[in-house]
Design a protein around this nucleic acid. Structure first.
Lengths: 345, 345
DNA sequence: AATCCTTACACAAACGTTTGCCCGATTTTC
DNA sequence: GAAAATCGGGCAAACGTTTGTGTAAGGATT
């Protein structure tokens, strides 16, 4: 009982009219009379007509598909972002072609190639950690495939992007700690190769200076984001001449590792040392001692904005060379951790 | 500088040969001589020829795309499964069209419709929690679109599916606790509407009986998987005449809630009460007191197998009515939690 | 009554590729 | 040396849809 879906050709034959009339009738083209139009529509219904998407796509030279390349779907940030992208795409009746680079530059390169071959109409990318060269994205320009980067943005000039400004959040975080009375604030930062590390550091410095406190470089240490690296970094801070009473960490994971280590050292997290971090991941709800606050980076909104921009580019007449570029920064925001009744022991 | 990719037509003109020859040459068709073949290939390279996928798909009447509908991407289980599906699909040069039902039956219905319109070659589905009727999947049969369900499988006869058998894991969990000396083992189960709840319970009972212990129904309570529900369930168990010394929980979240509550009650988790759960989610690594073991349900493998089956169906001559159905159950498996140096407190 | 618009539809090309069939030229076969 | 097989390649249809152009019939305008 394999019934191939009906085609407009069959409808035309059945009604003894031309194919083009059927096509136009279904699209409510004004040059088709009302009676014919209705006749066609009724017949289409009756024959269970479904427009053959692949034929339409082929004919129009568009795929009505946007590609999304991101590092790792299992990271909460990205799965949230992809949800947003999907929602936006669905609203526009576009499809989403998803692929993970697993933070591997080579894989990312292949995926770009694949997306291009699949003739996606546009591309949304959050680059892999290891990506150091960006020629594979240049190629897309020649094929007139617009790209919007989000969150992890390459350091290029002529690109569209949406990213989260870490500085504001960083300033908020430090201000928050200062208001709580802390004067010696440490920072466990990420590797210098990440743009985000620089922004976090900048925010830290700005907040200190604005509060007329001098900036002590020895209070900022960087780590490789692993547990071991974090432990080393924390140890470094604790051995510092000026021992910090609060620490800002690069993200919730680093916070987690640091907190775990601090407890092992017998440090009282209620009185001796407080933590603030970035990301505001769900995991902090599961920790007995979580950072007291975390900087939210709004993955859903980032995804949404990025997708919106991409559609804007798709709809604009992009026949002329692109000269203006969307460069959107979303302000990050400090969020207090939900008050938890700390476990007894 | 918009350069539309070259077509075989242009290659043909440039070489003054026919289109069909170019096509066949590129496909290494035996009826094309070696010299011509190489000439064509060189020219194709030179002109940066890229086969137009949409044209091919249209011509072949296939989309080389499989659809995936699942409840929620942000759940670790599914993001892991989708990774597997993606990997399998990539290996076969297929694309993945992803969509989330957000556990809503209506949305799921729409997505199935959309997938059908997009003429996906096949479909992978994990049904939404709320889905109670399944006609929307029947339609796919008429269009000859094979469907493979995974993890959350509808209670239908003539379907292909991959699921995880909870019984084995449940038995292992109980056996594990019995061997550790526990005699009064409680269970915080999920809602009765979920098939998994029944399986977990069955496994529990079987394990008890096999060890010549009598089964006490009052030791099994169900909850709605929320934190409040879990607390109530735990309280119920603790007030039982026979107070359990170990508890099997429906999943890691329930375990988390229960552990949190138990600690608040001042219960010593090292001596008084032990937990075992299901899912083996990454979160248990972040908890100070995690369940001592968890039943792994192999999301990656489930996704992989489901995808494999789908491709098998796609490649088989499915012109005749399907009569045999893949019904794969993967055995779940108890996994010990990594030993953690418990925090001092 | 001849001209000019509309109206309402038909014709056919085009999108890029695959593939069944045909055909001329060379080689093989007896 | 003629018939047959093989080789190498061309022709054209087909996939389903959209859309520019052509063209009848009918009405309005002069």
């Amino acid at each position: 009982m394999r019934q191939k879906p009906a085609t407009i050709k069959e409808i035309a034959k059945k009604l003894s009219i031309s194919i083009s009339t059927v096509s136009r009738a279904l699209h409510d083209h004004p040059s088709i009379g009302l009676i014919t139009r209705q006749k066609v529509k009724r017949m289409a219904e009756e024959m269970h007509y479904e427009p053959n998407q692949t034929a339409i796509l082929f004919q129009k030279g568009k795929t009505y598909t946007i590609g999304v390349i991101l590092p790792e779907l299992s990271e909460a940030f990205f799965s949230s972002a992809i949800s947003a992208i999907e929602d936006v795409a669905n609203k526009r009746n576009y499809n989403v072609l998803l692929a993970q680079s697993h933070d591997d530059q080579e894989k990312e390169k292949q995926l770009v190639e694949k997306m291009k071959n699949h003739r996606v109409d546009g591309l949304l990318v959050s680059v892999a950690k290891t990506t150091a060269s960006f020629e594979h994205f240049d190629m897309l320009k020649r094929y007139n495939i617009p790209v919007v980067f989000f969150d992890r943005v390459p350091p290029l000039k002529d690109i569209h992007y949406v990213a989260c400004n870490m500085e504001t959040g960083s300033i908020e975080a430090v201000n928050f700690l200062l208001k709580k009375g802390h004067r010696t604030i440490g920072m466990i930062n990420g590797p210098g190769t990440l743009a985000a590390s620089g922004q976090r550091k900048e925010g830290y410095i700005k907040a200190m200076l604005k509060n007329r406190l001098k900036f002590d470089p020895s209070l900022i240490v960087s780590c490789d984001l692993t547990e071991e690296g974090t432990i080393q970094a924390l140890n470094g801070l604790l051995e510092n001449k000026r021992k910090p009473t609060a620490i800002v960490t690069f993200n919730d994971y680093v916070s987690l590792y640091a907190i775990r280590h601090a407890r092992k050292l017998g440090i009282d997290l209620n009185t001796e040392l407080e933590f603030v971090s970035y990301a505001n991941l769900p995991i902090i709800n599961f920790m007995d001692h979580s950072p007291i606050a975390s900087v939210e980076q709004f993955p859903y909104i980032q995804g949404q904005r990025a997708a919106d921009i991409l559609f804007d580019l798709l709809n604009s007449n992009n026949d002329e060379e692109q000269t203006a570029f969307y460069k959107i920064t979303i302000e990050s925001q400090l969020v207090m951790s939900p008050v938890k009744t700390q476990a007894a022991g």
